[in-house]
Design a protein around this nucleic acid. Structure first.
Length: 200
DNA sequence: GAGTAGATCCTCT
DNA sequence: GAGGATCTACTCA
């Protein structure tokens, strides 16, 4: 198991990074409670030419400023007033690429996840969907800007790789407002994981 | 089982 | 002041 190095995030091919992130593991470790989930679903947000991205057309605000940072930091923001969405910022300084982590499989600290989410038993709803995932991992907007190589939050590679046939792609979810860009096949997921969100 | 409303608050206009 | 990279529960059939 090795921590993913910063150089990985600095690639200019956000689609490649998104695909590669499938099977990797997100660790969080705050308040002495360690939790981890294996990523099974992601979406790529391709910078200023992508209407679905917050940074579309070079929009730059206090909130999106994080996306313009050098790759390897977390971008967390609140959606619908309830859900925290966790993104991995990629590419170099000044280029607002990001990968939204949409779903994972619990790996470690399931008891802690159950406590955080208020669920009684671990089933596939625990880390299915971006809102549930961040809740289970304890990620909140205050963690936006954290380095992904820090001691509290990091991504790791345990050597597991999915075969090409096990990975599928599709248009992104919940971005109908983005016009034709909503049709781009920028969502990648593990085909037979019950933790993948969206239609069954 | 399918469809829809409500929750709830930060961010940008 | 409106709306959103969502989820859940409830209605109706």
């Amino acid at each position: 198991m090795r921590k993913i190095p910063l150089s990985f995030y600095r690639s200019d091919n956000v689609l490649e990074i998104a695909k590669t992130l499938l099977g990797k593991i997100i660790f969080t470790n705050w308040e002495s409670k360690k939790t981890a989930a294996r990523i099974v679903e992601v979406e790529a947000y391709n910078g200023i030419t992508d209407k679905a991205s917050h940074a579309w057309n070079g929009r730059r605000t206090d909130r999106t400023e994080i996306m313009y940072q050098n790759g390897g930091v977390a971008y967390v923001y609140l959606c619908y007033g309830i859900h925290h969405l966790f993104n991995v910022v990629t590419n170099g300084d000044g280029i607002p690429h990001a990968v939204l982590i949409r779903a994972g499989e619990p790996v470690e600290g399931v008891a802690t996840m159950l406590k955080r989410t208020g669920k009684k038993k671990a089933d596939y709803t625990l880390t299915r969907g971006p809102g549930n995932l961040t809740k289970a991992l304890g990620i909140e907007t205050g963690h936006s800007g954290f380095s992904l190589t820090s001691r509290q939050l990091w991504l790791a590679d345990d050597g597991l790789g999915y075969k090409k046939g096990a990975i599928a792609c599709s248009p992104r979810i919940g971005v109908d407002y983005a016009g034709e860009d909503a049709l781009l096949p920028y969502r990648f997921y593990v085909r037979d994981s019950p933790y993948v969100s969206g239609k069954k």
